[in-house]
Amino acid sequence: MSTAAAHNHHGEEGHGHDPHLAHHFDSPQQQFDSGKLGIWLFLIQEVLFFSGLFCAYAVYRANHPEIFEFAHRYLDVTLGAVNTAVLICSSLTAAWSVRAAQLGQRKLMIGCIVVTIACAFGFLGIKYVEYAHKFHDGLLWGEKFNPKYAPGGHGEEAGHSPTADAEGHSGQHATAPGATITQEAAGEAKVTTPRNTSIFFSIYFAMTGLHGLHVIAGIIVYVWLLWRALKGEFGPKQYAAIDFAALYWHLVDLVWIYLFPLLYLIR
């Protein structure tokens, strides 16, 4: 397979970092294929890196579904949905930047990279707003979990059906004395918080936090690509770095596409 690829000259210069073919490759095609296989292996490694957290999620959700059904209502579905749209949009522009580079459309390529970076910042901005709410309202991990209101609403506008639901679920835990926290939910009926609800926020912050770090890494990569693109380094014969970065960015997007329903849309 590889030997066939080595002899398969396309006359393309697909390199990663050097303007010239590295000395240990026979052909630009071989160099490009190596880079591509390398980035795919890196992405597999990334999937397994995240898998630990998905596994923790699965274990705790299976053992304590009531925590997840109760606590997810604290999350803002609208902001989450907007962020999903923002990331999908950035994935489109990331893919488009590769095509623009292949076709030699330099301005389009630079525009796509800029939009990708802007979307990434937009995502982090919205995430910041969400995190700020959580910090303000005491919706945190471990012993720091100290919610100021019942789920389903923000402060004054306490939710109605969530309250009822939560009470329904709390029944499962009536056997454990002292295991539930009762709260006064903005003048309405008492809401019981399942025991160890903080676990949900531990997992929420761990997963979205690690994902956020990957978004930041993606921004760094794309700023570097933008700098190189402005120097005119990319073209139909050299677009490997843009291609590989887009693959990475799609993975970051894909992780979020799993995180959004798993954390925000639980029923």
């Binding site: 630990g52 991990w141 471990g142 012993e143 720091k144 676990i199 761990a206």
Partner: peptide, 21 residues
């Protein structure tokens, strides 16, 4: 190895922030 990486990362977070996982 990435699974070890996330495990020790979680252990670090556990110790610094007491997330309780």
């Amino acid at each position: 190895t990435p699974v070890l990486a996330i495990t020790v990362l979680l252990l670090t977070v556990e110790r610094t922030l007491h997330v309780g996982i």
